[in-house]
Design a protein around this nucleic acid. Structure first.
Lengths: 334, 334
DNA sequence: TTGAAAGCGATACCAA
DNA sequence: TTGGTATCGCTTTCAA
């Protein structure tokens, strides 16, 4: 914690016996002869000069920083994203700022508004939901924004999305092809975006497999482990003929796995189980859980790349990229 | 993406018909009469003025930003930390920057060196290991640093640490008290800091319980699921009389759980199992895994608080805080 | 190619 | 209390 003032470009100039403009030029690789560069570099080393990024930012009007805002970094999907976003940005010289907004829409709008402070060059945003105020804010942001998630078509912002509807369809078709005849579905709340999409996908999957939908085999609960366990227990007690369960996320599916074990049903022998999100839980559960990946890592990477292109001056029309889901089959449905 | 230039303090001053100094004062709550404040606020709203944090930083010499650097945010312990660090800092008006260094010591030193650029006011660092070069860098950082992890006594830096030695002891004593007679231990590499500490703790725990150490029941492998599974399988095949397994982290313990199931041994009936780190895996495993928490969330919070105190001007001698471990008993050892 | 000087957008000192 | 002005540390235009 030595608090000696850091040397500025003026000290370097004095030591090198040149002007500060020459120092700046030499350091930034602009026209200057080899001799000049050598003298400046020597002086830089001598005084231990490191440029102030703050002063540079003020002058150049960019900060070298990008923000990533989402509900909670503890959520496995967002975690996967940030793990890919960070190296992608760092390779291009950007630092990453993290905003966990919690389940607070106001906070989310606050992040959007704060962009006017110009502390970052761009933002990657995963909105909880997109309100009119979001749309309005997104139309006039101070810096480029990329949204990961659903976005109305008329919002002129780069957009990366998953397809959990097709993902759910994938899961159901897989279960049907594996020979399951009574495929139950434990969904999250139907009035949420993912809950609705997965519900639609489930029905589409059944239809594609030439099966009837039996509403008695569909349940709605929260996207949590305990909720999944409880709901699965009830469902399987009422309908012992169920031979497959599709959980709308891995936590629900894990809950189902526990319930089945408690009911003495063999997985996958008696009942097959598939989850969604392909979190780290899936690989270490017993039996290992088949799960549909929604490509969080890819979505993060693509969002970062889109943003970098914008910062590079690309002013093409906003892009919309949909990342396809993929199913990883493990023992729970084999 | 409207690219109209953002208004500056000069526009506000002009609209309000006052000087820029008065605008600054009114906005920062410094001596100015009510009338002045009202006029300025009106003008601010009229032109949509938002101060530039970059310009403010240049002048005030602080950025309102703090960095958190660790190996990989995907690691459950670091994730827990960041989840507490972020809100703690945000409540005090600081933004959080994330540096994932990967397993690269050079990168870690690079972060330390980059502090001279003054893009943050402070750093929370979780070093992989502390080399001489770390010590040297830590002695002369441009901004306050708090280290989470082991640090030599003579490094004048605030330090927060876990106690996995005592944590391991806790686990072993618990298993002994639960009635286990042959307590095996699957450790990570002995030449790592955590591997060594947990090894010592295991032996202390046995000693405290009045048991002999049997080296045949100790194995070293990697801190990974597959490694734990494989090692546990070998161990339990060679020593069928083992009635408890302590895994040096949750991944190893989960592997042991799988191995036991494959060997047809009941948990906890035949063999009790305890892990360490108390990750989200523990609660959803089957049976739910007892695990020793090393207080990652608390360590993160405390580190953030220590740093905030430094930034507040506290120049007391460096502090060293050790967060005690705690055991959560679940079905796997009940 | 180099140096002088203006300016990025704020804060804070000093007079009035 | 208010306004003028220097200043933070850099980049960049403009002359020389």
């Amino acid at each position: 914690m030595s608090q000696r003032r850091r040397p500025t470009i003026h000290e370097v100039a004095k030591v090198a016996g040149v002007s500060i403009s020459s120092v700046s030029r030499a350091l930034n690789g602009n026209t200057s002869n080899a001799d000049m560069v050598a003298r400046v570099n020597a002086a830089v080393r001598e005084v231990g000069y490191v440029p102030s990024v703050v002063a540079q930012s003020l002058k150049t009007r960019h900060t070298g920083q990008i923000a990533f805002a989402m509900e909670d970094i503890g959520n496995a999907a967002y975690l996967e994203m940030v793990r890919r976003i960070q190296p992608t940005l760092r390779d291009e010289g950007y630092r990453l700022l993290l905003h966990s907004t919690g389940a607070d829409v106001e906070d989310e709008l606050g992040v959007l508004a704060s962009l006017s402070q110009n502390y970052v060059d761009g933002l990657i945003l995963c909105p909880l939901r997109v309100t009119d105020r979001h749309v309005e804010a997104l139309r006039q942001t101070a810096v480029p924004v990329v949204v990961i998630g659903l976005l109305p078509d008329d919002v002129p912002v780069d957009n990366v999305r998953a397809d959990s509807r097709v993902g759910a369809q994938l899961a159901v078709q897989h279960l049907a092809e594996a020979g399951a005849r009574r495929i139950a579905f434990i969904d999250g709340p139907l009035d949420t975006v993912p809950g609705r999409a997965r519900y639609d996908g489930y029905r589409m999957g059944l239809a594609a497999a030439g099966r009837e939908t039996d509403d008695a085999l569909i349940r709605f609960t929260d996207f949590r482990f305990d909720a999944g366990r409880q709901t699965a227990r009830e469902l399987l007690t009422e309908h012992p003929d169920v031979d497959a369960v599709f959980g709308a996320n891995d936590l629900i599916a894990m809950g189902a796995l526990h319930a089945l074990r408690e009911l003495g049903r063999d997985v996958p022998g008696d009942v097959r189980v598939v989850g969604m999100d392909d979190t780290p839980l899936a690989a270490t559960s017993f039996p290992p859980l088949s799960s549909v990946s929604l490509g969080s890592a890819d979505r993060g990477r693509i969002a970062a790349e889109l943003l970098l292109r914008r910062l590079d001056g690309d002013d093409a029309p906003p892009e919309r990229v949909t990342v396809p889901p993929s199913l990883t089959v493990r023992e729970s449905s084999r």
